[in-house]
């Protein structure tokens, strides 16, 4: 019993109770809460879409948003390459892929801003009806998550330029990657339910 308690305490002090890294477990639990957050918004959007069909959905440009989707998928690829680089001790690769991620994230946000501006010109606004309200709320909150991710990536790049990461201390990049990939998954779902079906 005493031995078991000592092991428990040792794991707690090492930040690995249950054999799991606390920071990583915390990020996964945060992601679980985000599933609920976006799940609520998606449920509301689908309820409005199916309950009160709107012709406003014809204003959406699938090809243009498809390109933006490709941009975000590419950024997920660069994030995982950044993690792979630092795990192999490649500092230059880490900086390059983080830089690319920031550029791609900014490109996605620019594409979304362009889309929003086009829709506003067409008369689809946050207050123009149920479709506009649910569309801008859902995609806007996703855009906010991408923006936070870009800021986080920028902070990671600054730290990387100061040599703040090593192969054995790459958890910061891994946690950022989990967040970024989750935001990517949310967009995969949004692209389907908003633009395709």
């Amino acid at each position: 019993m005493e031995h078991a308690m000592a092991t428990h305490e040792d794991h707690f002090r090492a930040g690995k109770l249950l054999g799991l890294d606390h920071r990583k477990l915390g990020m996964w639990l945060f992601i679980a809460s985000e599933v609920m957050f976006f799940g609520g918004l998606i449920a509301a959007f689908l309820t409005f879409k199916l309950g009160t069909p709107s012709t406003d959905s014809a204003l959406l440009n699938v090809a243009q948003v498809g390109v933006n989707t490709f941009v975000l998928l590419t950024s997920s690829f660069t994030v995982v390459l950044a993690l792979s680089a630092i795990r192999a001790g490649d500092q230059r690769g880490l900086r390059a892929f983080l830089g690319l991620t920031i550029l791609l994230g900014a490109a996605f946000l620019s594409g979304q801003a362009f889309e929003f501006a086009s829709l506003y010109r067409e008369g689809l606004t946050l207050t123009s009806g149920v479709f506009g309200s649910s569309f801008f709320t859902l995609t806007g909150f996703h855009g906010l998550h991408v923006f936070i991710g870009v800021v986080w990536a920028l902070r990671n790049l600054i730290k990387a330029m100061r040599g703040g990461y090593r192969a054995e201390t790459s958890i910061g990049i891994e946690l950022f990657g989990l967040y970024w990939h989750f935001v990517d998954i949310v967009w995969i779902v949004l692209f389907t339910i908003i633009y395709l079906i």
Partner: peptide, 27 residues
């Protein structure tokens, strides 16, 4: 697509199964 990102980019395929449960059960 979502499964590919979660399994390979988020490493759920090779990581502890517990994280998969944390993601899938709320969904």
């Amino acid at each position: 697509k979502a499964s590919l990102v979660a399994a390979f980019f988020m490493h759920l395929r090779s990581d502890t199964r517990f994280y998969t449960y944390v993601l899938v059960i709320p969904a």
